[in-house]
Design a protein around this nucleic acid. Structure first.
Lengths: 162, 162
DNA sequence: GAAGATTGAATGGTCAATCTTA
DNA sequence: TAAGATTGACCATTCAATCTTC
């Protein structure tokens, strides 16, 4: 098969390792902050955010799972905790009885509104505010390029240059 | 509480959400690839990489845990699986008997050498090769800026003077 | 006392299987 | 048959506690 391996050169390796490093460290730090100051895991927070932005603050379980990059069972269990704490309720769908809606409660919305300023401040302090405008713009553009395979790369000429 | 919240503007939010999105999606995809094609979890792979780059392919448990952003107990359990599979061995330290070394075995090295080309190819395909040189350079710079608080931000007295 | 490593209890995630409904 | 949600079995990770050694 592939006889030669295109290893990462110095800059590529630096970018990749930094990316992994920053994302893991940042996740751990933000999780810790949110958990100790507001009793919310990062996953809980993400659920509340997505629900709060949805029409009527409700989403089908399967749609919510997709938005959160979570498996169906993962979301079920994640929701159990939020339901137990009264931040979210489950509601059956009348038109399709296979479906369950996750609905943000008033208390859930308050908890989110309470936590959000602190969380945003942390995101600023640990990420956004360490970048100037140009860096931020470039970063956003690069990440978009990663998410969107863009136009097909010129396949014939890619592999040869050292 | 803080009277005003500096919410994220459109571009800031876009950069932050893309960052979270890309890192979670990428992690899941790379993990899946590595697991199905080489029977290695991403965490296993990271252990092997760090050991392979260390002098004599060995590291103290506590140092390895720090490099991997893993708790001591997390590393202990992670290592158990690798030891069971014969990819790593534990060795006591003669000069400080509190210390245990994690040492990469020949088989561990082979498994890593076997998996690395595929993994690097996936990292290229899903990340590196979707960026041009300029984007890559900017990304690496931005991530370094995030990792290193650099000089104090020019934004008023944001830090510690309330 | 502090550092290094491990263990126990608890939590959060996945996959495979199941149950209901479309 | 397939889609949606849940459950059971299992694995990974963390914190707190413990044990040994410095």
């Amino acid at each position: 098969m592939a006889g030669e391996v295109r290893w990462l050169d110095e800059e590529e390796a630096r970018a990749w390792r930094s990316f992994v490093d920053v994302s893991t460290a940042l996740t751990a730090e933000l999780e810790h902050d949110l958990l100790t100051r507001h009793g919310l895991a990062l996953g809980d927070y993400a659920v509340l955010v997505h629900l709060s932005e949805a029409p009527e603050r409700r989403l089908r379980m399967c749609d919510l799972a997709a938005q959160l990059h979570l498996s169906p069972s993962g979301l079920t269990r994640r929701l159990n905790g939020l339901v137990r704490d009264g931040l979210v309720v489950r509601e059956p769908c009348s038109s399709d009885r296979r479906v369950t809606y996750a609905v943000l409660t008033e208390e859930g919305f308050r908890r989110l509104a309470d936590a959000a300023p602190d969380h945003v401040a942390e995101v600023r302090r640990r990420f956004i505010d360490r970048l100037d405008r140009r860096q931020l713009h470039e970063l956003a553009g690069a990440l978009d390029a990663v998410r969107t395979p863009a136009a097909a790369a010129p396949r014939g000429t890619a592999g040869s240059a050292p």
